[in-house]
Nucleic acid binder design. Structure first.
Lengths: 147, 147
DNA sequence: ATTGCTTTTGCAAACGGTAGCGACTGCTTA
DNA sequence: TAAGCAGTCGCTACCGTTTGCAAAAGCAAT
């Protein structure tokens, strides 16, 4: 399934699949998009105590560059999720409660087309996140009352 | 004109207009949206050598919170510009050449309305920036050839 | 297997940004 | 004018992230 496909693709692209990288990929996959850098680090370190935080950063950046993972900014924290081209989506993040919601890509189709048509500007919306206030917090603000 | 209006409003809101804050506001205004934190710092320090970088950060955050300045992410750098409610706009930033272009707010009106109508999610698009590849770089990539 | 070359790693130092703290400033009240 | 108080400042220590570098690992050719 998914995991194998990714590994296969990395191999084809000539990316070395070191034990460290596999552990990090695994951690991100298990975390299902909810893990930050430090959590990925701790997770991977459990299996391999020599794991270094710098390696985690380097590897996550590598994976992002390769299109294997996606970075989602939630508040001031970065979360990582496996990128599945068949399940592309954007994210809505509530600035009050910190909740994150997936958003179907077609909500931005019009925007993308307008930019391309009018400015020949090709937007990169893959890692797109829109912040705001979610329905719950708008109704009855729980985090910062009297907002 | 503009500058005076801002000062007046800050005064009314009970915000102290210290020399440091005035220098920082000035630097941002003079920079016309092209200055990063360090440049604002250096600029302000010329007039007042005791200026501290922490004060610059604190003040810029304060101004942002008060709606006086806007933060624009260009690459991994944050730029600051005076926020003029009558001239609201978003930004397009080219990932290749780093160029930044203003974008009329109505390009996102449809998006905003869809989110509010369908999810009761009230997006904060004030500091919105979309990255991508501009017309020039798409035609003849100057920065990273053979992209 | 051995050699030579490239990539990756772990460590440590450096960097950018933030937070704590004591000193100072500018109000308010007397 | 003095005392009290809140807000702000500069300094320093700190935390998360990045970079430099030498050692290790992987790969290709012999």
């Amino acid at each position: 399934m998914k995991r194998q496909g990714i590994l296969e693709e990395l191999r084809v692209r000539g990316v070395r699949l070191t034990p460290q990288r596999l552990l990090i990929l695994n951690a991100v996959a298990e975390g299902e998009g909810h893990l930050g850098v430090d959590e990925v680090f701790r997770q991977a370190k459990q299996s391999y105590p020599y794991m270094d935080i710098a390696t985690v950063y380097r590897t996550l950046h590598l994976f992002k560059r390769l299109g294997v993972v996606t970075e989602v900014a939630i508040g001031d924290r970065l979360h990582f999720e496996i990128r599945d081209p068949d399940r592309r989506h954007h994210h809505m993040v509530c600035a009050k409660c910190g909740g994150a919601y997936d958003l179907a890509p077609d909500y931005l189709d019009g925007f993308r087309e307008a930019l391309m048509k009018e400015f020949s500007f090709e937007p990169d919306l893959d890692n797109f996140t829109v912040t705001g206030v979610c329905a719950n917090c708008n109704a009855g603000p729980s985090d910062s009352p009297q907002g």
